[in-house]
Nucleic acid binder design. Structure first.
Ligand SMILES: NC(=O)c1ccc[n+]([C@@H]2O[C@H](COP(=O)([O-])OP(=O)(O)OC[C@H]3O[C@@H](n4cnc5c(N)ncnc54)[C@H](O)[C@@H]3O)[C@@H](O)[C@H]2O)c1
Ligand SMILES: NC(=O)c1ccc[n+]([C@@H]2O[C@H](COP(=O)([O-])OP(=O)(O)OC[C@H]3O[C@@H](n4cnc5c(N)ncnc54)[C@H](O)[C@@H]3O)[C@@H](O)[C@H]2O)c1
Lengths: 212, 212
DNA sequence: CTAAAAATGTGAAAAACTTAACACTGTTAG
DNA sequence: CTAACAGTGTTAAGTTTTTCACATTTTTAG
């Protein structure tokens, strides 16, 4: 990787692509920085800066070529061979996630799910087979799974993370509200919806106080 | 509000509280900055700085009083009367969210859900009644709902956001992958799981390249 | 009683990130 | 033909956020 991109830029590139894919579908061939900016609620300068960082140059007065930009973003943030992903915990959230992800991004392949409940093991959802959590280490190796998404109950968070790490996984996306610990060579991302909701609530309160 | 807290600090305070509640349950009365830091994968200085910003002082050599700190964080980020919340779109994700939120934070009350599907309207889930989307404006007023969580299909994102805004809502948490536009006085938070997953994938790839 | 250790609190420096300002260049209207 | 316009690309400045470094305080050990 020749670039040393800011973390925030990585997130925004993913978001730009999401917006660009919609534009492409609509048949739009070019887009201005300020159009992207408005969709993402940021400034046009920010967009141009990010594109500068990845070395993309638009056409003066015409903006950026949607197709080209989608491809370039792909070259930068995706890995060329794609990456295999597993979901652990096929409850409400796990099922919702599979439904949502499936078919959305070709380089992110959800190839397995895991559960402890015998009723779920053996089922297939949106083409993703559900295995016993006991078989996780083996299947992770067999299928070359490198990322695990955790949607197990909070009390099983740590042990699930440990199991994933021990099985050789290199990235974890933790949706349980329980932070977990992983070695330095495993990339960890955690997200709790309550934090988002509390943040919204805080700023709603703040806005109200400003008006008063 | 006397404090002018950084955005990031607000997020972390919510996370600190989540961790502190677990400690409280376990019967732990005091906690050091470095303990909080380790749970949250940040530095102890960062924790102390945040607590400094909210004016909390711990006991030297004993750390912070768990109960006191939970209360202070509540005073700062919660609104004293609590806040009413609605979920729009009772599909997989909407149902998962209700199950998860319910009873977790007393100041965030999910008091209604909305859908367009007649099969769902009239049902109650975890004590939350589901109304027709057509009744949204009225119910928002009746129940004094100030935050809306959007979990409708992406193609209905904009119109749902417009409806919420027109009905007088002051904060939106958008879980559809389609960014929406709202007036300045409405606080908007958007989250797309694909961005998180792509970020994990990017850093997994990066780590692998470093090793090579 | 004193020194070492282990914690907090914070001013100042550093790093990360965003915005301003403007040079540059095709495009369009007159 | 030319001036105004509307975009891009980028340097520099500004802002926000994090980290460093260390003074301070309590506890513990000798
Ligand atoms: N539901 C949400 O919207 C939401 C939001 C944020 C976070 N979360 C968190 O995500 C997690 C899952 O939420 P949910 O609503 O899907 O819960 P759920 O109870 O519906 O699903 C949990 C699933 O995990 C399985 N499971 C239990 N122990 C396991 C183990 N040791 N190994 C593998 N699988 C195991 C269960 O059989 C079940 O299928 C919880 O930690 C929850 O707090 C949920
Ligand atoms: N499932 C996920 O994990 C996931 C993750 C991220 C984002 N999302 C997004 O969240 C949204 C919901 O996902 P889902 O899996 O729950 O989908 P879903 O299809 O299961 O649920 C959508 C629900 O919205 C209702 N609905 C449709 N139009 C409506 C309208 N105009 N007003 C009110 N309700 C309406 C439907 O009747 C249905 O109950 C989608 O936009 C999806 O892309 C889902």
């Amino acid at each position: 990787m020749k670039y040393n991109l800011p973390h925030k830029t990585i997130e925004r590139l993913s978001q730009y692509r999401r917006a660009l894919l919609i534009c492409l579908e609509k048949g739009q061939t070019h887009i201005y920085s300020h159009e992207i900016a408005r969709i993402q609620h940021i400034t046009a300068v920010q967009v141009r800066r990010d594109l500068m960082l990845i070395g993309y140059t638009g056409t003066l007065r015409k903006g950026y070529n949607v197709k080209e930009l989608i491809e370039l973003i792909g070259e930068i943030i995706d890995s060329s061979e794609g990456i295999n992903v597993a979901i652990v915990g096929m409850g409400n959230l796990g099922r919702a996630l599979i439904n949502y992800f499936i078919g959305k991004r070709s380089h992110l392949r959800i190839v397995a799910s895991f559960d402890i409940n015998p009723d779920k093991i053996g089922n297939t959802m949106s083409g993703v087979p559900c295995f016993s959590i006991d078989d996780l280490p083996q299947i992770v190796k067999e299928k070359n799974i490198r990322i695990g998404i955790m949607t197990v109950p909070a009390e099983f968070a740590s042990q699930t993370a440990d199991l994933l790490v021990k099985s050789g996984i290199k990235g974890i996306l933790n949706y349980t509200p329980k932070p977990v610990n992983v070695p330095d060579d495993v990339y960890l991302e955690e997200y709790d919806m309550i934090t988002s909701l509390e943040k919204v609530a805080f700023y709603v309160k703040l806005n109200e106080q400003k008006i008063v």
